[in-house]
Design a protein around this nucleic acid. Structure first.
Lengths: 249, 249
DNA sequence: GGCAGATTAAATGTCAGACATTAAAATGTA
DNA sequence: TACATTTTAATGTCTGACATTTAATCTGCC
């Protein structure tokens, strides 16, 4: 392992970096036990609290897990898709909210990625995926559904579409984009008429995917993207109008 | 802020979770200063080292930054695309290496995502993007280039293509997929003939993008994907053949 | 001999207090 | 006013200790 001079960075950051390097580089393999905190402290010539801070950094990225007790210690964690998925969603959400990403940009990205999946999904979707999509469509049509519940169902529907491609890497990548959009989507008030339109498009998508018609799926996704953006714009302009009225009053 | 009972999880994990919630939820906004470590320790009724471990967890995710000195402290960090980008690349790389993701699956995901960007890039690419692509093509044609350098140039070329779409969210998402593929790509030995073929395809792509021909770009990307997979397969079978010869010898 | 319970040991989790270091703000002085 | 000095408030680090958890070991009884 590398040593740490008295550079500008924290000792704990340097140590974390060194260990991360060993994991990424393959010197430390999955489920392998790291030296104990005391041994690490001895090796890096720092105190145990400093080592602990470094380990916590790695734990925050799911690179290691710790176990107490006699045979305990820190172990290299097998990074699972679900773990990475969660991190991606929160990261992507924060990125959007902190960087003033416009609805249009986020929406464009989301649908571009989704269209990338659609042909594969049309080819490989299982009855399971189709069933999920149909179920969510049904839910979306029920009266009395809150806007948030409607959006949540929307996410589930699109996730089923993406998962239909049967490519875990794609699902993982897309998950971030689709779910991170939800807070933005939640700003939209879905009228009965707009819900009806969306449900109709979703039905078309499910039909096209079931018929394994990639071109058709692509076309409807384009329509849906345009409609979603239009909807968002009308909300924005309506809100602006209201503000204006308030200002003059 | 929420309190922490004596649950199963670490106190530092709980505290990190609580603070992360405040950031995600918007109670703590960008550049806002968190209470000092001593105050946090007081508030959560834990010791300062425990608070510090929690803060290091957040720092590892670029959610906060710390500053020493009189007016120092922990501040909510504006999560920038570059920070998130780095994290994504390492996470995606580890995902691929730790989960036995096949070359085919990763390759399919990468090109599917790239084709999602291509039409937008054909529409919006700037002279800058085109120049980068041409420069990398030139580099790839030079003799004496190592396989690794060839791969690195390949990544730069494809990043320019992706960035041409002018959508930061897309670039961010794609970066992970493209760059995480690199270790897998590095397994391939590029012969002079295969390099020639790839350079030709890259040139076709640059031409199509310059001509703003989305359909053509899509078509060539398909060809390139097929060629890349074929190349990988030949490497795998060649290696298997060698192993077999070794076994019989 | 074999098994249940008590003991031990090794590791992480947590705490308390201290000192070192940093960087800005307050202060003093020419 | 301008510059040098001191103060101060914060993080960074260390030492040493105790608490807690967990598996392995030991003990005693049947």
């Amino acid at each position: 392992m590398k040593i740490d001079p008295d550079s500008s960075k924290d000792l704990s950051a340097q140590i974390a970096e060194a260990i991360r390097g060993e994991i990424v580089g393959g010197q430390l393999i999955v489920d392998q036990r790291l030296p104990s905190e005391a041994e690490l402290a001895d090796h890096f010539e720092v105190s145990r609290p400093t080592v602990r801070e470094a380990l916590k950094r790695l734990a925050a990225q799911s690179l290691i897990r710790t176990q107490r007790g006699a045979t305990g210690g820190a172990f290299v964690n097998r990074l699972r898709f679900e773990d990475a998925y969660d991190q991606q969603v929160t990261t992507a959400s924060l990125l959007l909210s902190m960087n003033a990403v416009s609805f249009d940009v986020a929406c464009e990205a989301r649908y571009a990625l989704e269209r990338a999946c659609a042909p594969l999904s049309a080819e490989r979707r299982t009855p399971d995926h189709l069933a999920t999509m149909r179920a969510e469509i049904h839910r979306q049509g029920q009266p009395g559904l809150t806007d948030e519940a409607f959006c949540a169902s929307d996410v589930t529907f699109h996730r089923a579409l993406v998962d239909g491609a049967g490519n875990k890497v794609l699902s993982y990548q897309l998950a971030g984009a689709v779910e991170a959009m939800q807070p933005l989507m939640n700003m939209i008030t879905f009228t009965a008429r707009s819900r009806e339109a969306i449900v109709a498009l979703h039905t078309d998508i499910a039909d096209a995917v079931e018929a394994q018609d990639a071109a058709k799926t692509d076309e409807i996704l384009n329509t849906l993207e345009a409609y979603t953006r239009e909807l968002a714009h009308s909300v924005v302009t309506a809100r602006a109008q209201k503000d204006k009225e308030k200002a003059t009053a």
